[in-house]
Nucleic acid binder design. Sequence first.
DNA 1: TCTGGGGTCCTAGGACCC
DNA 2: TCTGGGGTCCTAGGACCC
Length: 403
Amino acid sequence: MLALVDCNNFYASCERLFQPSYRRKPLIVLSNNDGCVIARSNEAKALGIEMGVPLFKIRPLVERHGIALFSSNFPLYGDISARVMQVLGGMTPQLEVYSIDEAFMEVPTQDLGCFGREVHLRVRKWVGIPVTVGIGKTKTLAKVASFIGKRRNTLYHICDSKDLLQVPVGEVWGIGRAFATKLKRRGIHTAACLAGASPDQVRRLLGVVGMRTCLELRGEIAYPLEKGPEPKKNIGVSRSFSQGVTDLEVLRGAAAHFAERAGEKLRAQGSHAAGLMVFLNTDRFQPNPYFGHTHVALCTSTNRSAPLIKAACAGLVQLFRHGLKYKKLGILATGLAPIDGGSLFTPYDAKPQRMQESIDAINKRYGRHCIQSALNLRNDWLGGKNSLSNRYTTAWDELPEVS
DNA sequence: TCTGGGGTCCTAGGACCC
DNA sequence: TCTGGGGTCCTAGGACCC
């Protein structure tokens, strides 16, 4: 049997962990630039705040009900997530960390209820975060169980066949808006109905992906538990700007920053990139937006910041058109491959490599961005985070104080 | 005025090879 | 007038996830 452990309203719960006065109060967490809602406490959900709505559309509601606002604080959420996963890792022979707030695990005992309750209690006690445990024969059924558990507000739920009747087909893991529309058009409205359909028919309608979901709902494993974390096949960094940017030099600062960040991510997973895709757009909500993208090949595969920055800036200059007001810039490292020491034909120069290692060592010891590209000094593209909480667990000068 | 960021997988079609 | 068969790799686009 498989369990899905899902942290309830994860980002909202993280904020409450260090500011308990917000318990039982409506609270929302906002995306970059305090733009959209990306997490809501149950009280905020009850007020009708939808996932993903832009803040400006719900301002009146926020003020009327005194809803607490938080800017997103990913250093905090990432650290709390790691603690939750560590606790889960101690309770199962096999854990698959699925996202920042979810993990699948093999249930090592016959007593499913006891296991579900124990997982909830242990995470609650050791980390302080509420989780819902869904148990089923497949990942998709564990997801169904978690859906029911959350709706009934229980600590855990074990999937049984009647549950599928209560789950709208669009709520099934793997069925998004487009698939749900196609299914409903053919009279398939619930998970039970999808499970009852013929897998071949579902395959013709939705392709193999849809068919796998159908099989999983019937109790047949199509997505086994994964062993270790696979290295990422793409690594991207992008940001929207709160104010439109017209100045190439400001964009260059942002491009350098993103390339440096991408380099950090590449080095962290031990990969090289062969190229860099650069994206530049104007406001997508205005008429005739500009969407530019270009690919820049790197002379040799690398994960060092300097050549990545150079490539990012080269791509940017290609895409830049005078007189436009840009709202978003992004880069994507492509052609990722593990570092293998290079081949006979790749030129290898140890010096820049050693320099990168030294920079990383200094930054690790004295703080991120202690040494960085001078281009990064131009950071006026950075948007505001008006309601940012402290990094309670990852920054010495922001630790909680007890008086 | 204000609208997130970071991923995955599958499929179809074109280029190219023998 | 007749115009093969089989394979790989790459890319773009669409669907999904949190």
